[in-house]
């Protein structure tokens, strides 16, 4: 009869954490920051269809890094949670705090259960309030830890370096175009510290805009509007985020509803790239 190897619980958890962290660090970063009219989401993502950030409910959006099929699953779970709650209670009763709690419990249970492989994801759940002071940003890690972030947060890739830079460059109440340039600037500086230029085609940008007249505040910024906001000659005046009638309709392409990559090659980008 063989005696199984003894692995201390500390070691087992450390191994699982290591595994998850490595997967997450492989991908590119997502930056979420507040601006004058709401919350801005920026990521380097060459894919038009496989999104890293999406709408969950009226005032709530979701951003993620890590394995696409895992966070896509969590996103769909979140949309189902929000819609069921909004339908059986009232739209007002769907909150980012509630959703973040559910995600924390889900990730935490999966992380500590021996039977399941830990999710290689990090999430942000953000809710735009009626004023800047009411904006909420929650960051959730692979082990179910939850942090209440203020003003800005970065995850995936060189998140720590980016956060350091954001600390220097981000100010409260920036207009949308300036906030976007701050975000693109820090995303382009990750890695060895040398600056890369990121074009509009490589970016995925979305906002939760509290000034939007519709109930649903989430809007993707694409095409001409994104180019204009990124333009060097962009006016200092604030750009209205809302030109298209409907954000979700404007993003066009249908999202692949499943795994975009196979499980054996954990990669954080939504689409395969060389």
């Amino acid at each position: 009869m063989t005696t199984p190897f003894y692995v201390s619980p500390q070691q087992a958890m450390a191994d699982r954490a290591d595994y998850a962290r490595k997967g997450i660090a492989r991908g590119r970063s997502v930056v979420v920051l507040t601006y004058a009219d709401g919350i801005l989401f920026v990521a380097e993502n060459p894919s038009r269809a496989l999104h890293k950030m999406s709408e969950i409910y009226d005032r709530i959006a979701f951003a993620a890094v890590g394995k696409y099929n895992e966070f896509e699953n969590l996103r769909i779970g979140g949309v189902r949670y929000a819609d069921i709650r909004g339908y059986s209670y009232a739209r007002h009763d769907v909150t980012a705090r509630g959703l973040a709690n559910v995600y924390a419990q889900t990730l935490g249970t999966i992380f500590s259960s021996g039977g399941e492989k830990p999710y290689e994801v990090e999430l942000i759940v953000a809710e735009v309030g009626s004023t800047t002071a009411d904006d909420q940003i929650y960051r959730l890690t692979y082990d179910g830890s939850i942090a209440d972030e203020h003003h800005y947060v970065a995850m995936g890739g060189n998140a720590d370096q980016i956060t350091e830079q954001l600390k220097r460059t981000h100010r409260e109440g920036l207009p949308l175009d300036e906030a976007l340039r701050v975000a693109v600037d820090v995303l382009g500086r990750d890695g060895s510290g040398e600056k890369r230029t990121i074009t509009a085609a490589q970016l995925e940008v979305a906002v939760l805009d509290r000034t939007r007249s519709q109930q649903r505040k989430f809007k993707r910024i694409v095409g001409a509007q994104l180019a204009r906001l990124l333009g060097e000659a962009a006016p200092a005046a604030e750009e209205p985020a809302d030109t298209a009638a409907d954000g979700a309709a404007a993003d066009g392409a249908g999202e692949a509803n499943g795994a975009a990559e196979n499980g054996s090659t954990p990669k954080a980008e939504g689409s395969p790239e060389e």
Binding site: G78, Y81, V102, Q105, T106
Partner: peptide, 19 residues
């Protein structure tokens, strides 16, 4: 969490099942 009266705080399996 509050919406899930059927079990623990995590999302029930049905929520995470693609479909």
């Amino acid at each position: 969490m509050e919406a899930n009266t059927r079990g623990t705080g995590r999302l029930p399996a049905a929520f995470l099942t693609p479909g």
